[in-house]
Design a protein around this nucleic acid. Structure first.
Lengths: 341, 341
DNA sequence: TTGTATGCGTTATCAC
DNA sequence: GTGATAACGCATACAA
């Protein structure tokens, strides 16, 4: 038996129907407030009849928390980003918060607008998954009491927490893994995106090779993704002397490379070329690829993020963030060590 | 030169620094309000110094719109869902709204909570991408003036707009496409998820076959996804007489099927088995698969959704939603018609 | 154009 | 345990 005609119903209306005061209604819906069972029941009933729902906007106004967390991201359809988004929204909800996802193109202006959005909506915190945020705007967020967390952008700005995977170390590991497999002519497939993470990976790989006196080409044949990987293969194999071991700084890159190597050049994986990736997206495990790669522990990363968002204060952040170590996932795209044992 | 110490700065503070009234500040940040250029400038300067950002929570309180759109979704890492999410958040932002994504497990209780969240945050509208929402809660949303849009859930509830692709028609088209390719033993690979869309597709395919006096098995070997498709192949080919033509009600299903058919049973695609999918996710175009499929026009769908969200009133919705027709994308997973010409 | 006053829906503080 | 009342930050009708 709905009474209202339009718009949302307020606590005031509920109070009238239940024959109690606004405060009683408020208390009924506030955790740990003291209401008698009798009034509580009356209120709940009236609320159900009217279809009342607490207005979190108003609540966030008096209270100083909105329970909104801004998530700034780009290229959502990318398996890695989608997985991150999935895990974040899930875990955020588990602690009673809600994610406001802001989709940016990744350029400075776009990210700046995203940051302003989170400010406008008084988000309790901001998680930056991609793009290079303007330092002064970040500072503004921090100054306003927002918890801001930067993921995999190793530009160490003061204030926000920086959560980064061990990119360089893992890239070195990839190098040694390929070398132990007997690969002689190495190459790294990277992208023109040039994000801090990706750069860290490709340059660390090259550096590790340089220590052994090896020079490896870094191919950047387009923005990150499948197509760029495929194009890299075309560039590398269009003349003889192509690589017999490649490191894709991203699984997507590695997968594109693998497909082009196989279908455009008839190469066998891993007999003719060993390939190792980074991320362990779902597709890496598909039978057509069976890509050996390094898994980013997404679930643990997000747990850490949520912890940062809620428990710790900005001052203690430096200490609470442990190193995050991708672990190698062995599948079939890398040659077994020839002289094993 | 920051003055504030903690928390967000309000219009009040800006007004004091600029030497004007609160209203002047408000007007400066309200589109189409009348402020003199002089005060406007003073306000803008003070705001910049203080790092002021309009509080949309408070704004949404007096105004009756929050500019928040709830997006209810599950299985975000799924390429199709991720693509949808990407397009929605992008287009929503383009019209000054922001998406609040609520990640559900898809079960009734979870979706109900999601719906309540959108009510709590006074979302202007709700887009339901997955899950089966409780009819009475939907009614409550509509009653409260929210625009709610159901995507691909053909349970026609009164009130919300229903946006659905032509599932049945397209499934029939898939059937004829396979038949024209010369396939004799057909099968459809579906999932245990049993969403309205998927059911519509598999049963329409079977119905089309029945009209020709053909009986086709519908395999549901797990929840939607790659693994379920692969398992379906194992079930179908573990004994002789496996299909030479299959319809995957989802690309993911089709891809999993293709991989298992090839790698576990040595089948060639399309020589031994023709496969057609549904969705046209990015991976369908990867060289290892080259899946012939039907593309869901995601961008147009979202345009329509946004239009529904903003322009039309609920009363006119029935008329504004045109049929959405997936278009066939020909790649290499279906045998060319044997007796062409 | 500008400032003053009021209302938006809550929660918190205070008396009772 | 309950009800009045004052914030919270903003937009706006109104008066100047």
């Amino acid at each position: 038996m709905d009474i209202k005609t339009k718009g949302f119903v307020s606590a005031e209306t509920v109070a009238r129907l239940a024959g109690v005061s606004r405060s009683a209604v408020s208390r009924t819906f506030t955790d740990g407030a003291s209401v008698s069972e009798a009034t509580r029941k009356k209120v709940l009933e009236a609320a159900a009849v009217l279809g009342y729902h607490v207005n979190h906007l108003a609540r966030g106004l008096s209270h100083d928390r909105s329970n909104i967390i801004g998530i700034i991201v780009s290229e959502i359809p990318t398996p890695y980003q989608a997985r991150m988004l999935d895990e974040m929204t899930r875990q955020l909800q588990a602690i009673g918060k809600v994610g406001m996802v802001i989709n940016t193109t990744g350029d400075a202006e776009s990210v700046a607008n995203a940051l302003r959005q989170t400010l406008n909506f008084r988000a309790d915190g901001v998680i930056v998954l991609s793009g290079t945020p303007d330092a002064s705007l970040i500072a503004s967020c921090v100054a306003n009491g927002q918890r801001v967390i930067l993921i995999n952008r190793s530009d160490h700005i003061e204030g926000p927490a920086n959560l980064a995977v061990e990119n360089a170390e893992t890239a070195r590991e990839a190098y040694h893994l390929l070398r132990r497999a007997g690969c002689q002519r190495l190459a790294v497939v990277s992208s023109t995106a040039g994000t801090p993470s990706l750069s860290a990976r490709d340059s660390a790989f090259a550096a590790a090779a340089a220590e052994d006196g090896l020079s490896v080409p870094i191919i950047r044949a387009g923005a990150t993704g499948y197509a760029a990987g495929a194009e890299a293969a075309r560039q590398l194999y269009s003349r003889s002397g192509g690589p017999d071991g490649v490191f894709g700084v991203t699984d997507l890159l590695a997968l594109g490379f693998m497909d082009a190597a196989r279908h455009s050049f008839g190469l066998r994986v891993p007999q003719d070329v060993s390939i190792v990736g980074f991320d362990d997206i779902e597709q890496a495990g598909w039978e057509s690829y069976a890509l050996t790669t390094f898994r980013q522990p997404v679930e643990e990363m997000v747990q850490l993020i949520v912890q940062l968002l809620t428990q710790a204060g900005p001052d203690e952040w430096a200490h609470v963030v442990p190193p995050i170590k991708p672990v190698p996932i062995w599948r079939k795209s890398v040659l077994p060590r020839p002289n094993a044992g």
